[in-house]
Amino acid sequence: MRFLIRDRDGKFPTLFDAVLADAGIQIVLSGVRIPRMNAIMERWIRSYRHELLDRTLIWNR
């Protein structure tokens, strides 16, 4: 795991970030005014996986 995408919530202390940085994981913060970003990205990833797996099953026949 190289990246962790998280929001700017106060429940993540700076110690949490420090521990992950020591493990070599880069933390990427989400945008300030994007409360629905997680839902939008989950939908996009699900659609992408669905399309990719449909095509892969055809290739494997």
Rank of each mutant, 00 (worst) to 15 (best):
L4T: 06
I27E: 05
D17S: 10
M37T: 10
D54P: 00
H50V: 04
V32C: 01
F16P: 00
I40Q: 06
I27G: 07
E42T: 10
Q26A: 14
R6C: 09
I58Y: 09
F3V: 11
G31S: 11
A21Q: 11
I40R: 12
N38K: 12
H50A: 13
A21P: 00
I25E: 05
E51H: 09
R61W: 03
Y48F: 12
V32Q: 07
R8I: 00
G31E: 05
I40A: 10
R43K: 11
W59M: 04
H50E: 12
R33P: 00
R43Q: 09
G24E: 02
M37V: 15
S47M: 10
G10N: 09
V32K: 09
N60T: 08
A39Q: 13
L53P: 00
Q26F: 04
N38M: 09
R49K: 14
I27R: 07
S47C: 11
S30W: 01
Q26S: 11
G31A: 11
S30A: 15
E51N: 10
W59G: 00
I5S: 04
G24M: 03
N60R: 14
M41P: 01
V28L: 15
R49C: 11
F16E: 06
R2V: 03
M37C: 06
M41H: 10
N60S: 12
R33G: 04
M37E: 09
V19G: 01
M1E: 08
R33N: 13
A39S: 14
R2C: 03
D9N: 08
E51G: 06
T56G: 02
V28D: 01
M37H: 09
L4M: 12
F3I: 10
L29G: 02
R43F: 05
I27H: 04
I40C: 01
F16Q: 06
I25W: 02
L57D: 05
R36H: 13
R8H: 02
R46W: 04
H50D: 10
S30K: 03
Y48E: 12
P35A: 05
A39Y: 02
M1I: 13
Y48Q: 10
D9W: 02
S30L: 15
I45Y: 15
N38I: 12
E51R: 14
T56A: 15
R46N: 05
Y48T: 14
S30H: 01
A39E: 13
I45P: 00
F16D: 12
R46H: 08
M37Y: 09
M41Y: 10
H50M: 07
N38A: 13
H50K: 13
R43H: 10
I27L: 14
P35R: 04
M1C: 09
A39H: 09
R43M: 06
F16H: 15
S47G: 15
D54S: 14
R8C: 01
D54K: 14
L29Q: 08
L52F: 13
R43A: 12
I25A: 05
M1R: 11
M41Q: 13
G31T: 02
L15Q: 10
R49P: 00
T14H: 08
I58E: 13
E42L: 14
V19H: 06
I45E: 08
N38C: 08
Y48D: 08
P35V: 03
R8N: 11
I34N: 12
E51V: 08
D7F: 02
L15R: 13
A18W: 06
I27F: 04
V32H: 07
F3C: 03
F12M: 01
R43I: 04
